[in-house]
Amino acid sequence: MKINDLRFLKVKIEKHPTRDIQLEFLDKPNAIAALILNFKEDKVLLVEQYRPGVSSKLLEIPAGIIENNENPIETLAREVREETGYMFESFEVIYAPKIPLILSPGYTSEELYVYILKLKTEKEKTYEKQLDEGEDLEVVWENLEKVENITNDFKTHYAITLYKNLIKK
């Protein structure tokens, strides 16, 4: 995505269906997020990047906007490659959502597809990241058990909880 295309937040107004009031919300593109586990499933790949909403760097799972009529899997493969340097073929998909999550229905139209991926082997090759213009992020592998204590990013906490519930079954 070019820096000029970053104006992806659009304020929309619609009339309430039963009240005579106008409702404001952000019309925002849908997105994906990926909890990426190493082969042993004891480490999580996080990206550290500056986030203007909190005016600081934040550790979080890789994520990105669904662009140009992509389906969520195409976006997942593209974003994982761009942000982490791993090819999508290096992963086993442990979890794929049946439907997206609605993040904040009173505030935004955005839907989020959260996936869980696992490296197929311990020796998967990485390539140079292909960051979008304006992106500046670092990849960090953290112990699975520490992640909830080092970030307050909601999608990251949700994905960790989802993974822990899946492995209990």
Rank of each mutant, 00 (worst) to 15 (best):
V93D: 03
E79A: 06
E110L: 07
N71T: 09
V114D: 05
I36C: 02
P72D: 07
Y107S: 11
V114A: 01
K28V: 04
I65G: 00
L131F: 05
Q49K: 15
P29N: 02
L45K: 04
P72Q: 03
D20A: 09
L46G: 13
G53C: 07
I21E: 13
Y127R: 08
E67G: 07
A63H: 13
L101N: 06
E133S: 05
E74V: 09
H16F: 13
E110Q: 14
P62L: 00
N30W: 02
P29M: 01
P105F: 05
L45S: 02
N30M: 03
L119W: 11
R19I: 13
N38R: 05
R51E: 12
T18L: 15
Y50M: 02
E24V: 14
K15P: 15
K98Q: 09
K98V: 11
K118P: 01
L35R: 01
A77Q: 10
S55C: 10
P72G: 03
K57Q: 14
E60P: 05
A63E: 12
L37V: 07
K28P: 00
A33C: 04
Y113S: 00
L131V: 01
E110G: 01
D20R: 10
E48F: 09
M87T: 12
G53I: 10
I32V: 15
S104E: 02
T108M: 09
V54T: 14
N38S: 09
I94S: 01
G64S: 08
Q130R: 13
I116Q: 02
K98I: 07
L23T: 14
N71M: 08
P72M: 07
S55Q: 14
P52F: 05
T84C: 06
I21V: 15
M87R: 13
T126E: 14
I102P: 04
L59N: 12
L119F: 03
A31M: 02
N71F: 10
K98A: 06
I73Q: 02
K15L: 12
F39E: 11
Q130E: 12
I32Q: 00
V80F: 03
L58D: 11
L26R: 04
G85F: 07
E60T: 15
Y113R: 02
A63R: 13
P52M: 06
E110T: 04
I65K: 11
S109P: 03
L119P: 04
P72R: 05
N68L: 11
T108P: 11
N68A: 08
S56V: 12
L76F: 10
A34L: 05
M87H: 15
K98C: 03
Q49S: 14
E67H: 12
K57S: 13
I61Q: 09
D42M: 01
P52K: 11
V44N: 09
A63S: 15
I36K: 04
I32A: 06
E60Y: 13
L103W: 04
P97D: 02
T126M: 14
K120N: 05
L23Q: 15
Y107E: 08
G53P: 06
S109F: 00
A63W: 13
E24I: 14
G106I: 00
K15F: 08
R81Y: 10
E133F: 00
E74W: 05
E111M: 08
L76G: 08
S104H: 08
V44K: 10
E122D: 08
L46S: 12
N68R: 14
P105Q: 10
P29S: 02
D42I: 01
